[in-house]
Amino acid sequence: MDGIDTRQLVLDPETANDYKGRVDPDWCPGCGDFGVLNSMRKACLDMGLKPHEILTVSGIGCSSNFPGYFNSYGMHTLHGRALAVATGAKMANHELNVVVTGGDGDGYGIGGNHFTHTARRNVDLTYIVMDNEIYGLTTGQLSPTSSLDMKTKSSPYGSIEFPFNPITSAIMNGATFVARGFSSDTRHLSMLMQQAIEHKGFSLISIFSPCITFNHDNTVKFFKRRVKKLEDENHDTGDWKAACEKAMVWGDTIYTGLFLHVKDRPSLDAAEPVLDEGGPIAHRTEALTKEQGDRIISRMM
């Protein structure tokens, strides 16, 4: 192709680099999202997932460009709608590993309604949110997770709104795998991603992924000093109340790791009787059988 350098996609990846997409990221140098992308490549390599077995779905925003930089099937959809599109895709072909990527504005702001209901339905999706507490692509306005008093272009005198807590919200809404990561700790993040993809049900990994250009409050340095892994705290991932308490801690200590893991609630595709047999609906014969047609007509008589 003229204009931009593109690479051919690798059919059977043998290294993390083989999970590179056709183009390289156009993120700002130093963006936290690089760490997230590298963690995902490593997680998929370690799990032996083939690119055609993965569908990466995103919305709009810096981090939503993710599918273009990753070797898999991908959908770069509308702002805020990735979870809805991904739900349709997963339910129509439940054999796909569906990973949803996006940012805090996309997922917790404009897509907030879908976040609530996708968690409640326990759709078997892995939701990777790169939370930079700011709107980056629109050059720096308040996001749902921006801290109180934060000064941005849309809050020049400081925010007066209390921030959204993705972890407690996901837990309250019924998500069955709720974790928090930090983009600079790719080893930890990659491990969380593997667990999340393996989990049957809705899994959220909300990741501190600092914006180097527009957020000068929540920087890599800010998080490095504060993050503590729940794994080192003897946290019981079956205890939702303890998970919420840990998720509310925000000060000198901020917890990362797996907050909640519910293993006994069926995912939506597992609960759906239409999928009991016959494989993914996307692969089934379209035409009605004679018996089905006869039953339809007999009910009209």
């Binding site: 349709g88 339910m91 072909n93 692969h283």
Partner: peptide, 10 residues
């Protein structure tokens, strides 16, 4: 959007 996701996978 769900419809579009389902349609995309076939």
């Amino acid at each position: 959007n769900m419809v579009i996701g389902a349609a995309h996978v076939g």
